[in-house]
Design a binder for these strands. Structure first.
Lengths: 340, 340
DNA sequence: GACTGGCACTCGCTACAGTCGAGTGCCAGA
DNA sequence: TCTGGCACTCGACTGTAGCGAGTGCCAGTC
C-alpha cells in the first residue's frame, strides 16, 4: 500500500501527460519530460506498483499507461496543484457577465461562458425555487374563467402558469384574491408555503373559496412539486473534440443523458455545502455517464446557495483548470446576483 | 433530359432502398425487390442516364448507386407517395398533447413528441412575438427604482424584463404607468407597436416622462428588436443513429449549428404560406448543415401561423414519413392553441 | 429501336504474413 | 534501492492475394 512520494509524482506526471497528449504514456517519455531524477527502469517499477494498486492500467501489453478513474481520483484529491486563472480568462469572465439585463440573460451568458472557457459541456441550474422566496404574485385575468398566475421570486426568477377556474370570477374578486395571496405569501420561502397556502383556502371568504382552492392547487403543483427546476445547457459540440476517443466512441449515451432534466439536476443540483464536487467516471450514478466526469459547484448571492452549475467532459480532462474555472465563474455569478 | 416513367421508377426504388438499408443499391438487388419488369442490364442503362443527369452517383467504381441531393429533391417533388400516419402514431400524438397545461408545456411536449416520432432532431419555435398581440402588460415594483415588466401575449407567451428606472417612482405613478401602457398597447400586434410606444412617451404627463422613456426603450428593445424568439430543441441523441455514416462522420458542425438560435430560426422560421418546406443537403444556406436535411412547417391556431416547427436529420431520411409526421403534429398543435 | 444475356473489368473489403518499434518485465550488478 | 541491459510482447503498418458485388459494353433477340 505504500505509495511514497516518488510514486505519487509518477502518477501525477502520468495524469498530466495523458491529459495533454491523449496518448498512453511510457516510462521513457516520462523521465524525459519531468524531472524525476531517476531512470526509466525505476519508473517502470513504480508503475508496476501503481498498476497493482489500480491507479493506472495498460490498454494492452506493450503500450504505455493510462490513469484509471481511481487514479484521477487520487490525483484530484491529493496531487493536483491549484491552477490560477489566466488574466485573459479573468477578463473574459468579466466582459461576458457585465451588461446582463435579466436573470435569463445572466444564466444564458453564464452557461455559454463556462462552455467556452472549459471547452466542455456546461450546465447551469436556474436559481432553485425551493431556495427562493416569493417577492410578488400577480393574477392577470385572461377571461372570466382563466387567470394567468405570475410569480416573481427574490432571485429574479419568474414563473407563470395558466389557472382554469371552476366558475367565472368577477374582476373585483380577482383583486381580492391577488391581495390575499400576496399578503400571505410574499416573503416566505417556497418550500415553506404548503401550510400557508392551505391556510389561505381555509380562511378565504365563501364566495372566493372555489377560486382559491384551484389557485392553491396550481400554486403547489407548479411551484413546489413539479417542474420547479429549470436548466440551461451549452457546448454540446465540445463533446466531439478528442475525436471519439473519449467516451469510448459513442456520444449516444451522453447526449441522451443531457436531454433528461432530472439527470442534469442530479449532476449539479447542489445539496451539500458550497464545496466543489468532482465526480469521476464510474463514481457517477447515472449509467450513461460512466465514461464522463462532472465538476460542479453551488452559486448564489453572498454565502447562500441558490443553484448549481458545472461542466461535463471526458474523464481525461484538465481537472485543476476546470475546477478553477468553475469556481471562478460561480463566484462572479454570485456577485452579480448579489447586486439585485 | 428524357426521364421516362421507368427511369423515375428506378430512381424512386433507389431512394427507397437506400433510405431503408443505408447501403449503395445495385441493379440486381433492385429488380429483385421491386417489380420493375425488366432485367438488371436495362436498369443499369437507366442508372447510367440518371447518373449523367446528376440524380445518383457511385461512391466508387464497382459499388451500387446512392441518390444525390438532386435525386432526393426530385424524389420529394415528384415521386414520393404520401404515407399516411399509422394509427399508433396518431394515438401517440393525441396522448402526448392532451393534458398540456401551459404554453411552455405544449412546446416542450411537442418537441419531444416530434423527436420521438421521427427519430430525429426536433425544433419548435415558440409563437413569434412579432405575430402576437399584447393581451396584458404588468408592472411589478421590485424597488423604488426597479420594475419588473411582464408581457402576456395572446398566444400565451409570457416575457419579462427588468427595468432600471432613472429615478425613484412612487407607487401611484406605477399604477398610472401600468394603466397607460395597457390602454395604448393591449390588443395591438407587437410588430406595430413602435409608433404607439413613441406616442406613449410624447403624451405622458411630465412627471411620468422619465420613467416612461426608459420603459419604452425596454419595451422596444426586448419585445421587438432583440431576442424576441425562443426555441425548444430535442432529440439530439438521434444524430448518433446511423453510426456516423450520416453526416460524413462528424457531428461537430451539426451540434454547433444547433447551438445557434439564429441558425435554428432561419431553419424553421416560417415566413412563407403554410406549406411544408423541405431543404435537402446543399440547398441549405447554413454551411454546417450541408450534410443534413430539414423538414419544417408553420403552425398556429386556425389558418394563421404563429411559429414554425420541424425536424433535422440526415439527407438520407424517410421524407414521406417525416413530412407526414411534421404536418400532423403541426396541425394538432394548432388545434391545441386554438382552444385558448 | 428497345431490351437482354453474357463477359471482362474494376475496386473495395478481408485475411494473412511480415516487419518495426515502443514499451514492458525481469535480472544481475553497482 | 536504483540502474543498465536484454529478451519479449503486441499493436500498428505494409504488401499481397483472393473474393465478390457491381459495373459498362456489346452482340444478339424480339
Amino acid at each position: 500500500m505504500g505509495l511514497d512520494d516518488r510514486k505519487l509524482a509518477v502518477l501525477r506526471a502520468i495524469v498530466e501527460d495523458y491529459v495533454a497528449t491523449q496518448e498512453p504514456v511510457g516510462s521513457k517519455a516520462l523521465v524525459e519530460r519531468h524531472q524525476l531524477g531517476v531512470s526509466p527502469a525505476t519508473v517502470r517499477n513504480d508503475m508496476a506498483v501503481l498498476e497493482e494498486e489500480g491507479y493506472i492500467r495498460q490498454p494492452h501489453t506493450s503500450a504505455g499507461r493510462v490513469p484509471t478513474d481511481r487514479g484521477y481520483r487520487l490525483f484530484v484529491d491529493r496531487l493536483s496543484r491549484v491552477k490560477p486563472l489566466s488574466p485573459a480568462e479573468r477578463r473574459a469572465i468579466e466582459r461576458f457577465l457585465v451588461g446582463a439585463v435579466d436573470l435569463d440573460d445572466v444564466v444564458h451568458r453564464t452557461v455559454r461562458l463556462l462552455a467556452q472557457l472549459t471547452r466542455q459541456v456546461a450546465v447551469v441550474q436556474y436559481p432553485s425555487l425551493a431556495r427562493s422566496s416569493v417577492r410578488h404574485l400577480e393574477l392577470v385575468p385572461i377571461s372570466t374563467t382563466r387567470l394567468m398566475l405570475v410569480m416573481i421570486a427574490d432571485t429574479g426568477r419568474v414563473e407563470q402558469r395558466l389557472v382554469e377556474l371552476p366558475a367565472p370570477v368577477p374582476a373585483e374578486d380577482v383583486t381580492d384574491l391577488r391581495r390575499l395571496v400576496n399578503e400571505k405569501l410574499v416573503g416566505s420561502r417556497l418550500s415553506d408555503t404548503p401550510p400557508l397556502v392551505q391556510a389561505l383556502v381555509d380562511e378565504s371568504a365563501p364566495h372566493l373559496r372555489g377560486a382559491m382552492t384551484t389557485l392553491s392547487t396550481v400554486l403547489l403543483e407548479t411551484l413546489v412539486e413539479r417542474h420547479e427546476e429549470r436548466i440551461a445547457l451549452a457546448g454540446t459540440a465540445n463533446l466531439t473534440r478528442g475525436g471519439l476517443l473519449d467516451f469510448q466512441g459513442s456520444l449516444r449515451p451522453i447526449l441522451e443523458a443531457l436531454e433528461e432534466e432530472v439527470v442534469l439536476l442530479k449532476l449539479i443540483g447542489e445539496t451539500e455545502p458550497s464545496t466543489t464536487r468532482v465526480l469521476i467516471g464510474d463514481e457517477n450514478e447515472v449509467d450513461n455517464l460512466r465514461a464522463a466526469s462532472v465538476v460542479s459547484t453551488g452559486y448564489g448571492p453572498g454565502a447562500t446557495i441558490v443553484g448549481g452549475l458545472g461542466v461535463l467532459g471526458p474523464t481525461r480532462m484538465d481537472y485543476p483548470g476546470t475546477i478553477a474555472t468553475v469556481r471562478a465563474v460561480a463566484r462572479y455569478v454570485g456577485e452579480l446576483l448579489a447586486q439585485n
